[in-house]
């Protein structure tokens, strides 16, 4: 009887652990990603993005990358408006 109860407890724990380890989590697994560098070329004229002319529009053809007015954030500042 005592043994049966012990078995029940242990199998409960085993199942709980299994379930915790194998169940899918909301939002999925987080796959560790390495740091990377990228660039968004102008989709209209194909030019790279120039620093002097800001972040919001293409320095060469005026294509609008972003329709917003940048404010003073963390790394992005007002000066980065085109």
């Amino acid at each position: 009887m005592a043994e049966e109860k012990d078995n029940k407890l242990l199998s409960y724990l085993e199942r709980l652990k299994q379930q915790a380890a194998t169940q899918q989590h909301y939002g999925g697994d987080i796959t560790p990603e390495k740091a990377k560098m990228d660039m968004r070329d102008c989709p209209k004229c194909g030019a790279g993005r120039a620093f002097e002319k800001g972040l919001t529009a293409c320095a060469y053809c005026g294509f609008v990358f972003m329709e917003v007015k940048l404010t003073d954030g963390i790394n992005i500042k007002k000066e980065n408006n085109s």
Binding site: P32, M37, D38, A50
Partner: peptide, 14 residues
């Protein structure tokens, strides 16, 4: 060098 704007994405760890 060319003053182009790149986008840097940090690692998951960072």
């Amino acid at each position: 060098f060319c003053h182009s704007q790149n986008t840097f994405s940090p690692s998951t760890g960072a």
